[in-house]
Design a protein around this nucleic acid. Sequence first.
DNA 1: AATATTATCGCGATCATGTCGCAATAATGA
DNA 2: TCATTATTGCGACATGATCGCGATAATATT
Lengths: 137, 137
Amino acid sequence: MIAIIFLPLRMNKRNTKTKQLILETLKNAETAVSQDILQEELGDAVDRATIYRVLNSFCDDGIVHKILGDDGKYYFAFCVNCTEKKHHHNHFHFRCLECGKIECLPNEVDIKLPKGYRSVNFNGFISGYCAACSPGA
Amino acid sequence: MIAIIFLPLRMNKRNTKTKQLILETLKNAETAVSQDILQEELGDAVDRATIYRVLNSFCDDGIVHKILGDDGKYYFAFCVNCTEKKHHHNHFHFRCLECGKIECLPNEVDIKLPKGYRSVNFNGFISGYCAACSPGA
DNA sequence: AATATTATCGCGATCATGTCGCAATAATGA
DNA sequence: TCATTATTGCGACATGATCGCGATAATATT
């Protein structure tokens, strides 16, 4: 099913099939996805570089989060609970080493910085095994 | 000055000049260092790949921490307050976007995972401006 | 001390993620 | 319908990190 998703048409952005596809995939995904995962889903229909560009463009528009996984790759997730102005990113992400799923951990965390320090980016990552993948323990 | 540092000689490890040099540099550094920073300090005396290998080897031995910076590079820091068995890694690291310095933030953090989840790696990173580099604010 | 063993090194090649330039394409506005 | 220009595809590039392999050198053995 092809969902019609509105892109922000301000700022001279255009609405293309590729963007629709990627946005739809992101929306349907229950986890944050990286370029290579998207590539798999989309097959050779869409170019590598294009995926990167679209994802980063979405990110600039505030539609998706961009998070750096603790495997060194970037993951993108559809923005929920974020208004135009205020994004909520100060939570940890969890990556399952077995099934690869990435989830947001519920608790927002507040890290105290030393006096005079200014925070710009927050990145919290925990990897391990999710409930489904660590049955024994 | 050449400090004599003991490497774990168990596990068929050998003690070489290169390892001594790198370990010494790590010990003297007041911040976590990445391969390229080490490369600068060591000049062309030591090969790129060797530095990587030695660092990862140290990491396997539990001598140094390996942390993924929010710039996508790995940083290594001498292990302090870590016993053979128990490492204390559950603190945030701060990277100054101006001077590049990397520091450990004092507070250990305890993130609650959902039921059944098992944590293996912890990675907390905040980047911004340190006191020296953000005078105005 | 001399020799054998093999961890480590240096060098080059390779892989991976992510980015960029540019000509061709296609989405929008007039 | 046409003009404008955002977007795409393709190739090349940049960087961090890894690997294979022969040469070197740190230990172990005799």
